[in-house]
Computed example of a mutant assay.
Amino acid sequence: MRKSDFNYSLPPELVAQYPASPRSASRLLHLDGASGACRDMKFADLPALLRAGDLLVFNDTCVIPARLLGYKDSGGRIEVLIERLLDVHRVLAQVRSSKPPRPGQKLILDGGATAVVQGREGEFYVLEFEIGVKLKESPLPLKGGEGEGKGEGVDESVTEILDRIGHVPLPPYIARADEGADRERYQTVYARHRGAVAAPTAGLHFDEAMLGRLKEMGVDSAFVTLHVGAGTFQPLRVEDIREHRMHAEYVRVLPGDSDKINSAKKEGRRVVAVGTTVVRALETAARDGRLDPFEGETDIFIYPGYRFQIVDALLTNFHLPGSTLLMLVCAFGGTENVLNAYRHAVEGRYRFYSYGDAMFVD
C-alpha cells in the first residue's frame, strides 16, 4: 500500500484560513460508508444524522500557546514549537534555527523568558526554562518590553510563561500569523486538560447550543484525552506506508468513560468518534472489542485493512493528501468511497483542514 494511493488534488484557495462564524456555521458532508453516497448538509443539521442513545466521544485536550519566538544567546533567531510538557519547568520541543542549538546554550525568548538546552531526543530538544519571578500585583514586561512590574514575586511555571508570551500554534498551512481570536477559536468549547499543540479540529464546530440540542434529543457523551503533538503535521517520508512509524502521543481513558462506552457497545448503541484523535485513543485502549481504562502513550497507525473494535461512526474534518489522518478515514469509510467524497467536496468548494468544514461517515 503506497502513500501515492491517498493523493487528491486540492486548489490552495480551499484551505480555510479562518474559522466559520459562528462555530456551527460550517458545512457538513455526509458519507454513507455502505453505499458511498454523499449528501451535502450544514453542520447545524448534525442532529438529523444522530439518534437517541448514540454516544458521542470527545477529546477534551486543551491547546497550549506552544509557539515561541526569540534568539540564541549567540545571536541567531529561533522559533520554538513545544511538543510536550515534561514537568513544571521542562518541555520537549522543536527548535528551528539556522544552526542547531547545542547543549547548555541559552534561548532568549521574546516577551521575557529564558530556556536552556539540556539535550536532544531525536528531532526534539529538551529545554529547561529558567524560572523567573511572576509578580502577583503587577505584570512582567509585556511583549516587546513595555511595562515595569512591581510587587511580591512567586515562581512562574512553564504553562504560565506560555500563557504570557506564547503564540497559538496554528498549522503550517494557515498562511498568517496567529491573532487574538485564535486563542478562543483554535480550542474546543469543552477543552479541559492542557497539553495539546494542535487542536482536535472536528470538535471546533461544536458550540454550547449544539451540545444542548444533542443532549435534549437523548444523545449521550463521553470524553477521552489525547494530547495532539506537532508530529500530526509531519509528512510521510516513505512511499510504502507500512514502513512509517507514528509519533507517540499521550492518551488517557478514565474508568467512568470506558464504562459508558462499553455499555453502549453492549446495548447496541452507536459509538460516534468526534475526530481522528478519538478514534486513535479508543482503538489504543480496546481489547477484544471492549474498552479498558488506559493511561500512557500511543503510536497506533490505522490504515486500510484495520479492523475497528469500538468506533461505529466518525465525525472528522478534511485532511491533507497522503497524510496518516486521511489513511485512518479511508480505513473507516473505504478508500474509494472517501477519495470520491473528497473529490465531491473539492467540486462543491468545501473548506479544508483545521478551520474548514466537516464530514460525517457512518
Rank of each mutant, 00 (worst) to 15 (best):
R280N: 02
S323N: 08
G268I: 01
G275H: 02
E267D: 15
L339D: 04
T316Q: 03
L325I: 02
E347K: 15
E295P: 08
E295Y: 00
V272R: 09
I310L: 04
A331F: 01
N337E: 02
P304C: 12
L328M: 08
K265I: 02
H344R: 15
V338G: 10
D299Y: 05
A264E: 14
H344C: 13
D292K: 14
T324M: 10
N317C: 07
V271N: 04
A313H: 09
D288L: 12
V329L: 01
L282W: 11
T277P: 04
G333T: 12
E267Y: 01
V338C: 02
D299M: 09
F332T: 09
G289E: 07
I310P: 01
Y303F: 15
A264S: 14
L328E: 08
G289R: 12
Q309L: 06
N340A: 15
K265T: 01
A331E: 04
L326K: 09
V346N: 10
Y342T: 01
A264T: 11
A341M: 10
V311Q: 04
V329E: 01
K265G: 01
R280Q: 03
S323R: 11
V279R: 01
A341E: 01
A331R: 08
H319R: 12
K265V: 02
V329F: 06
A281G: 13
G275V: 07
A285F: 11
M327W: 06
V279S: 01
T277A: 08
G275I: 13
V278Q: 10
K266F: 04
C330N: 05
N340W: 00
E295V: 15
F301P: 03
R343C: 12
R307Y: 02
R343S: 15
T324S: 15
A331S: 15
E267T: 11
R280G: 00
R343A: 15
H319I: 09
K266H: 08
V346S: 13
D299C: 13
F318N: 08
H344I: 08
M327D: 00
V272H: 11
I310E: 06
I302S: 11
R280K: 05
L291M: 10
D312M: 12
T277Y: 00
